[in-house]
């Protein structure tokens, strides 16, 4: 069964250039329904009012970080099953462990390439 590329994807990053990069890379692999947020709080509001099938989020943002967003998502009955990929420059063991404990679906370290992004999306959407 092919991956459903019509799902709504929420990308979250406080660097607008990074949002633009991820949006374009997603477009190249035919994910065209992409929404953006520049911090965890804005992302959470969009997630609660929308219907998203995937979250791709940075970690280091203020006032709500990507880890706090992940914790909120996993604690929300309606959102807890949404696949969540962390894309971040934070690459310490304790970061990966904390993200895993919070229920992250996959973890990409910046700088990343398009292959890695596609590979992790396929994995979390159930085809890896």
């Amino acid at each position: 069964m092919p991956i459903d590329k019509s799902i709504n994807v929420l990308i979250v990053d406080d660097y607008k250039t990074m949002l633009r990069i991820i949006r374009n890379l997603l477009k190249q692999i035919e994910f065209n329904n992409v929404e953006e947020a520049t911090d965890g709080a804005e992302a959470l509001a969009k997630l609660r009012s929308g219907n998203f099938g995937l979250v791709i989020s940075d970690w280091n943002m203020a006032p709500m970080t990507g880890l706090q967003l992940l914790q909120e998502v996993r604690a929300d009955a309606k959102l807890k099953a949404v696949p969540f990929i962390m894309v971040t420059a934070e690459s310490k063991v304790e970061n990966v462990v904390a993200a895993k404990q919070a229920g992250v679906s996959n973890y990409i370290v910046k700088p990343f390439n398009a292959e890695t992004l596609r590979d992790k999306i396929e994995k979390v959407l159930g085809h890896g």
Partner: peptide, 22 residues
């Protein structure tokens, strides 16, 4: 910041974990 111990930003390439380590 929240979780200050976990907000270190990019690590030096010679010591950072790469994608395969993660």
């Amino acid at each position: 910041p929240a979780e200050p111990a976990l907000l270190n930003g990019p690590q030096h390439p010679t010591v950072a974990m790469d994608q395969s380590d993660i």
